[in-house]
Amino acid sequence: MIYYHQYFEMASVIAGIIFFSSLKKEKMFVFFLLCIISLSVDLISTYLISAGYNSNYFIINLYPLTAAPLIFYGFFTLLNLSSRNAAIYRIVATIACAGFFINYFFGEGINKLNTFSILFFYFFNILLSSGMLFKMAMREDYFLFVNEPAFWVSAGLLIFSLGALVVMGMNQFIRINQITIRNVTLYRIIMPVLNVILYSSFTYAFVLCGLRKKSYSQSLS
C-alpha cells in the first residue's frame, strides 16, 4: 500500500534523478540523498506493517540517525560559515550525531520510537533552516528568493519541522489517549500533509536547479 504523501516523496526523488547533474553545482545533492533515505525508510516501514510485523520502529529510528549527518553537511555547505563558526558547527553536529547514535543503540533502543532523537533532529532542522533563511535575507547582492533552491529547501524544512516537532512531541500522549479523528490517529492525519509540503518544496528546488543550469548554458552559447 502506498500513501498519498509517498507519491510526493517519489516525485522529489524522480526530480532529483532527472536534474542530477545540476544538483551538485547548487549544493543540493545532499538533500537528494535525504529524499532517497526518507522514501526508503517510509516505504520499508509501511511494507513491514502491511506484511504483519508488530513494529517498524527499528527502521523509522534509522531516519534521524542517517538523515542528521546529511542535513548537517548540507547546511554546512550552504551556510559558508567563518572558520570559528564552522568549528563550533562541526562540534555541535558531531555531538548531535553521536547522541542520536547512542540513543539508538543504548538509550531508547532499537525497538522503541527514538522520540528524543527525532525531536532533536527536528529542532536542529528548524535552527538550520531558519539560519539559512536569515543568511539569505542578509545577502546584499541582487537575487530573487523564489529562484533559489536553498530557499525552497529551507522553507519546506522549516514548516515541516515546526509541525512535526509538535506532533512527535505529543506522539506518546496521542497514542496513549488514542486521540483520533474518524479512527485515524492525529499523527497519520497531520504528518502526511507536512510531508506533502516538504517534498513539494524539495521537488521544486531540484527542478529549479535544472532550470538554472539550463539558463546558464543558454547564456554561454
Binding site: 514548516i159 515546526l162 509541525g163 516537532l165 505529543m170 497531520i190
Partner: peptide, 9 residues
C-alpha cells in the same frame, strides 16, 4: 494540537 501547529506554520 491543530491550533498550535497552525500557529507555528
Amino acid at each position: 494540537i491543530i491550533v498550535v501547529i497552525l500557529v507555528l506554520v
